[in-house]
Amino acid sequence: MSKKNNKFPLNLVIAGFGGQGVLLAGKLIAEAGLHEGREVSWIPSYGPEMRGGTANCTVILSDSEIGSPVVENPDVLMILNRPSMDKFLPSLKKDGICIYNKSIIEGFTPRSDVKMIAIPASEIADKIGSTKLLNMVLVGSFMANSKAFSEESLAYALKKSTSAKHQNLLPLNEKAILEGAKYI
């Protein structure tokens, strides 16, 4: 928990509807961090809360032992739907980053003391081939903004987390990541 490297520990909360790939996005980021030798933790919301249709997870990447796996004030938010924006934006650290899917999130009051990165993620994903890729678009932007790990590490994590059956989808996922990475 040293404060020497100011990039780490990096606390991220990802939130959206169940089925938007929130938990998988978090897992990829944790895997990529692990690949670079970091301490990582991933913790989901679970149980009836999930049945209610929303899902979120907290990911921590750190250079030293991770204490609490839950964080009050994350450094980065990745928001996939409007209710999550209302719930989590107030908790974001001052000067933090909020990456969100502007295709379906509108009409909220952005904060001026944080960096708001609006991405038409649904449209980008659709253009590449599937709405399901929208989580990858946001992961790409997270990579570019946080510089928490290299593209190679993310590609490795992606490959590792993709079942043998779906390896043919890797190029599409990678494309979505690269498109997302343009939003900084």
Partner: peptide, 10 residues
């Protein structure tokens, strides 16, 4: 507990 059971770590 529920957290330790659900969380992922290396």
């Amino acid at each position: 507990d529920g957290y330790l059971g659900q969380m992922m770590e290396p």
